[in-house]
Design a protein around this nucleic acid. Structure first.
Lengths: 221, 221
DNA sequence: GGGGCGATGGCAGCTTGTTGCCATCGCGTT
DNA sequence: AACGCGATGGCAACAAGCTGCCATCGCCCC
């Protein structure tokens, strides 16, 4: 039995001081799962990382960012994600709650953030291959089934009102239009109108396609 | 800056000796993500855990098991999963490669397995809240989007022949039956027969539902 | 009150999908 | 050749879904 070291640091400043070189030293891959964008919204932290990255060659590096829908709540966050995506990062949205922040660099170093006020969070840094590999696999599993940012914005999931969701549920349950309309207390005409609107929103040409899209966007579970 | 301890043990025997009490001490929740079932296929390990669990009250404990499709490859593994499910565990299948083994008990303790020959693997045990919470969230994210075992077996995805897949593609592309049939070089009647068969296979009552199912089973990407 | 407006729902006509029935065809067996 | 059998495709009748048109209703604003 042996004891690996896992370093814990408190606050952005200490993280930058102790682990900043890890960010700058990224060789191939930078993956990140986060519930929100609090960390990088902190101007000091972002600038500090920015300075570190300045001289680095970022061309061969893939950046994968997995965030929850919360990260799209306000416009500032949206524009930040768009900017990141424009610089070549792949961004996906996971409907499940994500960690406060999980970063894996080159599949060698892992940094996890705990709860706490922005700027004063607790961070855990580790290089244990078993830990990093394990978490990396879980990240990939979550990543694979998440929705691409572009598709997510296209579908504009959150803008579905309660009515549309009800229609979606009825469709997913396999009812005919007639019984679905009855159950929702709508006329057949209106129900079908709703379906047509929904299909327009999902940019689907057929109900089958609408079903696939709905599934993709996580509107059925 | 502080240093947390992460214990590393080698081999099933040492894991049982050092961490066996953790399994037996499960109070509420036992979650587990694994690529295959090697660990628990080892008779000694399973028996040892079994002995530990014997007297424990398992009624209030939820067990979630997330595995890759590989775990369904041979009949022994299948029957083990069925047995586990019968005892109340929730089992889901993730299409992405999973860690060799990740276990989180009561959201307090985490055990990760590394590579290595069955029986002689390296395990990492940690209780760091930041690490455990972070990994737990990732697990949930992967879990949410995974397929339920029952649905997975019901759908029997791999047994779709090339024809059915072509039909699926046509449906997913949003073509009408007429143009789809033309493109596939089938008569309208035969194409529709295929669609009907497909829907029967997917146990779908409507094309919309078939679309959702197809998406769930990953037949569209 | 009156007018505008969006949401609703009835109706009708049309398109699309669903299914049973049967003729046909290819193919391997007897 | 004769037969059986499964796959195919045409046909038809029916069910389901789609949509334009218009009447109506509730609501807000003037």
């Amino acid at each position: 039995m042996t004891a690996d070291q896992v370093i814990t640091v408190h606050g952005d400043a200490e993280l930058i001081a102790r682990a900043g070189h890890l960010f700058a030293g990224t060789q191939r891959e930078f993956v990140c799962a986060a519930r929100d964008l609090d960390t990088w919204s902190q101007p000091e932290a972002r600038q500090a990382i920015g300075r570190r990255m300045r001289g680095a060659d970022t061309s061969g590096i893939t950046v994968d960012k997995l965030v929850s829908p919360v990260a799209l709540a306000d416009e500032a966050a949206r524009s930040h994600l768009r900017e990141v995506a424009a610089r070549g990062a792949r961004v996906r949205i996971s409907s499940a709650p994500l960690p406060h922040e999980t970063i894996i660099i080159d599949r060698r170093v892992m940094i996890l953030a705990g709860r706490g006020a922005p700027g004063m969070r607790e961070f855990t840094v580790t290089t244990s291959p078993v830990l990093v590999d394990g978490v990396y696999s879980l990240f990939r599993a979550a990543w694979e089934t998440a929705t691409d940012l572009a598709a997510y914005l296209r579908g504009d999931v959150p803008h579905l009102d309660a009515g549309s969701r009800a229609v979606l549920r009825a469709l997913g349950a396999g009812y005919t239009d007639e019984s679905a309309a009855r159950q929702l207390g709508l006329s057949l005409r209106t129900y079908r109108r709703r379906v047509a609107e929904l299909m327009a929103t999902l940019e689907a040409d057929s109900r089958f396609q609408a079903g696939v899209r709905a599934g993709e966007l996580g509107l059925t579970g």
